[in-house]
């Protein structure tokens, strides 16, 4: 295995995980104030009303597909009587549809961002960089789906290569050789995705980590006493604006 391969498939994954986890903890502790969606809906709502849900819901399906595809071993699905052919068919059609919706969604969102003057003016350099990585990951992912379906090149069963590799990373026994035989599309997708995870904590993507599922279960009204207001994770107060403690 070449040193580039080792770097890419055995070292980079841990760099990505490290940056992701440490970065998130760091940001949560020291810059919680900036942890938001930075929504631009107040500027423009029409395009967003379908592009926003299309992208996000599509992305949820894509993420769900990744979790099943990467973490559930092929032997398990076969054990419960799901043949590889059937699984593959389902994965490609559903994954393809979800990926398609996500890509259309993000292009509409970028179109909206670029053409609505107010939204464009509120787009930072950080956002633009993030979009490059995000779009590249999505496009590479779609081409990987196409290649696994045999539309590009030969059909490829990633559940024998990529999936075990991901599990080997998570089990702290990195086996980079598994990735060497995969089609180029998969390797590109995996590499860009890892770099996306590296920059994740430092972009607006952090909002994904605060999906408010707890809302469903909490009481409608919230009372808080003055003395236990949260004090962790605040950025250092600027001179003259020090936090008043009660």
């Amino acid at each position: 295995m070449s040193s580039t391969s080792i770097l890419l498939w055995s070292v980079l994954p841990y760099l990505a995980i490290g940056s992701f986890v440490i970065g998130l903890v760091w940001r949560y502790r020291f810059d919680k104030f900036s942890w938001t969606t930075r929504s631009s809906q107040i500027y423009e709502g029409k395009l967003l009303s379908f592009a926003g849900p299309m992208f996000h819901l599509g992305l949820f399906a894509v993420i769900g597909g990744h979790i099943v595809g990467l973490l559930v071993p092929q032997s398990f699905t076969e054990l419960i009587g799901l043949s590889q052919e059937a699984y593959h068919f389902g994965a490609v059609t559903m994954g393809g549809a979800a990926g398609f919706a996500t890509v259309i969604g993000i292009f509409l969102l970028i179109y909206r961002r670029r053409t609505t003057a107010t939204v464009f003016a509120a787009t930072t350099k950080n956002d633009k960089t993030m979009y490059v990585f995000l779009v590249a990951t999505l496009l590479a992912g779609c081409s990987a789906t196409l290649s696994s379906a045999g539309v590009i090149g030969d059909e490829h069963n990633y559940r024998e290569t990529v999936a075990p590799w991901v599990r080997s990373i998570l089990l702290l026994h990195p086996d980079g050789t598994l990735m060497q035989s995969t089609p180029l599309a998969f390797r590109i997708h995996a590499a860009i995705a890892m770099s996306l995870f590296i920059i994740w904590p430092f972009t607006r993507l952090v909002h994904a980590l605060s999906a408010p599922v707890g809302y469903i279960f909490r009481p409608s009204l919230i009372y808080r006493t003055r003395d236990n207001e949260s004090t962790t994770g605040n950025r250092k107060a600027r001179p003259g604006w020090e936090r008043i403690k009660y």
Binding site: S39, Q41, R224, N234
Partner: peptide
């Protein structure tokens, strides 16, 4: 307060003033 998904909005128990916790607001609007 009831509409806030993040639980960032609250009513102060002492004096009933309704506030937004700026550290906890995630911009769900």
């Amino acid at each position: 307060v009831a509409a806030c998904p993040s639980g960032a909005m609250y009513k102060r128990a002492e004096d009933g003033i309704v506030l937004v916790d700026q550290q906890q607001c995630r911009g769900w609007r």
